[in-house]
């Protein structure tokens, strides 16, 4: 077990290293000039050169990368050009807002989507199931920015119940969470329906049913339990994606999280800020993935981490 965890940790470190390195190279190859973004169109060529030199951008790419790795090893990812503050601090300052949004949205998705998916699986191919299915397809098809704007118009302008933007009060959480959760509920409930549905039709369940096992137990203790690993994997992947910043929703609701920060960092070619965001989000994504893997044996006793399947 420990060997498995150690192996996964080293794989995770390699993944993070490769991600950060790739982004380091790609953003420098992309068009744009951080010095110009910082100083504006009226800055002279001489001024821009001085700014580039002070940022270390005039060094060859390989040298810049070497300096970056050296600083990274010392825990320093650089100073944000636009905030004039350590980039990691800027990112960590925004991170709790994104985590808060993501956690609430995924919990809401779990609470609604799992019972809904099970309900659909048990009533597969009925008219009511078809109706709900249409709704979930609609939820899956509507872009989140459109849902966000509709919710804003309805609940912030027509019926001014919730704030339209920002995180100025607790009620400001409702609309962004609802916007994110609608898509997640649609996706997860359809997945639950498919997984639970296939388990409900499996021979082992027919046998259990023939032996007089109650329907509730068949559904939740057998079918749902056997579906839990793919469901958990999906939820984990969706959650990790949200931690990368729910860009559109954060921009629409002016939510002070990582998504809106990264948009701004890209617009201003703020390399250290982009790198800090990528580093933090990769650590989170890899961490969540690792956590999910470690949860598998809790959900299915047949799963033994790090062993070759013999079943």
């Amino acid at each position: 077990m420990l060997t498995y965890v150690a192996k996964r940790l080293s794989q995770s470190l390699l993944t993070i290293f490769l991600t950060v390195s790739t982004v380091f190279v790609l953003i420098r190859m992309a068009p744009g000039d951080p010095a110009y973004a910082l100083a504006g169109p009226l800055a002279s060529t001489g001024d821009l050169e001085k700014i580039r030199t002070s940022m270390g951008l005039n060094e060859p790419l390989f040298t810049q990368y070497g300096i970056f790795l050296k600083e990274l090893a010392a825990g320093n990812i650089g100073k944000s050009y636009s905030f004039q503050a350590p980039a990691l601090d800027v990112v960590l300052g925004r991170l709790p807002n994104t985590i808060f949004l993501a956690v609430l949205a995924i919990l809401l998705a779990i609470v609604v989507a799992i019972p809904l998916g099970v309900w659909m699986a048990k009533r597969a191919d009925t008219k009511r199931e078809l109706g709900v299915n249409v709704l979930t397809i609609a939820g899956q098809s509507m872009p989140d920015f459109w849902i966000g704007i509709m919710l804003l118009t309805l609940f912030a302008v027509v019926f001014p119940i919730f704030p339209s933007s920002g995180f100025t009060s607790w009620s400001g959480v409702v609309l962004p969470v609802a916007t994110i959760a609608i898509l997640q509920i649609a996706l997860v409930s359809r997945m639950v329906r498919r997984e639970v549905g296939s388990n409900l039709a499996a021979p082992y369940l027919t046998v259990a049913r023939a032996r007089g096992t109650g329907e509730q137990k068949l559904t939740w203790a057998y079918a749902m339990r056997n579906s839990s690993i793919p469901i958990l994997t999906t939820l984990g992947t969706r959650f990790a994606g949200m931690l990368n910043g729910v860009v559109v929703v954060e921009v629409v609701f002016n939510w002070p999280g990582l998504g809106s920060l990264v948009v701004r960092a890209l617009e201003t070619r703020d390399y250290p800020l982009i790198q800090a965001t990528v580093l933090v989000t990769s650590v989170l994504a890899v961490g969540v993935q690792l956590l999910i893997d470690l949860c598998y044996p809790l959900l299915d006793p047949r799963v033994r981490l790090g062993k070759v399947s013999v079943a």
Binding site: D293, L298, D300, P301, R302, R304, L305, G306, V308, S309
Partner: peptide
């Protein structure tokens, strides 16, 4: 990854 018998640490 695994569906073997026995009882691992996490199990």
């Amino acid at each position: 990854d695994n569906v073997a018998g026995g009882s691992g640490f996490l199990g």
